[in-house]
Design a protein around this nucleic acid. Sequence first.
DNA 1: CGACGATTTGAATAGGATCAATGGGAGTGG
DNA 2: CCACTCCCATTGATCCTATTCAAATCGTCG
Lengths: 215, 215
Amino acid sequence: MAEASFEDLVQAAYLQTFPAQLELIAEGDPADFLYVVMEGYVELFAHANGRETTMAMVRPVNAFILAAVLKDAVYLMSARTARKSRILLIPSENVREAFARDDAFARAIVVELANSYRTVVKEQKDLKLRTAVERLANRLLRYDAEQGAHGTVTLPHDKRTIASLIGMTPENLSRAFNTLKPYGVEVTGPTVTIADADALANLAQPNPLIDDETS
Amino acid sequence: MAEASFEDLVQAAYLQTFPAQLELIAEGDPADFLYVVMEGYVELFAHANGRETTMAMVRPVNAFILAAVLKDAVYLMSARTARKSRILLIPSENVREAFARDDAFARAIVVELANSYRTVVKEQKDLKLRTAVERLANRLLRYDAEQGAHGTVTLPHDKRTIASLIGMTPENLSRAFNTLKPYGVEVTGPTVTIADADALANLAQPNPLIDDETS
DNA sequence: CGACGATTTGAATAGGATCAATGGGAGTGG
DNA sequence: CCACTCCCATTGATCCTATTCAAATCGTCG
């Protein structure tokens, strides 16, 4: 994007540090700011019919609720810090201004939105086409790949959060881990070892059109 | 968008009529064309782990797989005509060209993508936060609203398709309709009458952040 | 009229959720 | 440093939802 637009956004932005478990936004609120996670972790979650679910975990450096800001609409999701986090807040007004003025910025946003869209589509496929155990197995393989494919995974979130993220209860997650034991999966607190990646992959049936970050 | 860009796209495009149940694209294929439904209905669906699910039904006039075209990536979903349909095929190359050249077009695409993104997020909330019966109840209320809120709904698709769309089996859909009978829902073939919209809404708990088209 | 596919219904099963209780750290305050 | 508390995670038992398998019914189309 143009230097000037960038400067304008940075000038208008606030960089703040928030403690863990602080609610940043609530679904239904008007989109006053675009949020960018600089450090830490932010949980996006949602409510309906008396239930709550984790929609996504946002890690540095990523923006969230971009679509709402551009549309000048209300947030569809709530957000809270999962741990102490440094977050950049950019007034929506400025984002929309830069979007209207700066062609390069507008195009960059398209790429970002296209990626976000495809990510959610993949998640929907994951949810509708796989059982809970399959989802967990694939998730473990993904974490392993992200962490260097050593066969030793450190879970990036609380188990209750992971359970909600992949669409199950904490109890069920615990049982799903047990189900994976015969496939070489051992759990010790937040550490998971994958003894036989092939066996696990055979169960999980990983699919690039669901599990690959890019593409 | 600019007249010239529009002309260019139209010039390069093919308008074709396809019979029902014709597979237009398959997930994993490179995105060679952007598709626009002019008449008829197109089903987007996906496979994984030996299962298949309906992801969306696209009606006129709407484009599908825009994100894949822009990213020059592979399709995440397959598509088939649900009935005889007239479809506009625009070569991806031309779309990306227009996107690069025409600023107004690029901005229009942002709006389109932002809407698509928010739609999928809503669907994910629907899936994760509601039971099958609640999803059906809300879907019926939505159809009723779309069709004029007369309390008489004509199902826009086969029941098996609707079942897959809202994430259940055809058998379960049939039973879900029976579950809704005490709430004033009567089914006769493709026609559904809603005798007591309040009772149904009380069960469904419709939520603008999930069920409203706009917002 | 006959065949096929869609829908419905029934029965049995499986997958997940809920409720309840226990064990296990991490953090707090004395 | 230790005891206490709280919350997370696990386990057990049970319940409920939804899927699967099977069969019957219905409607449509050739």
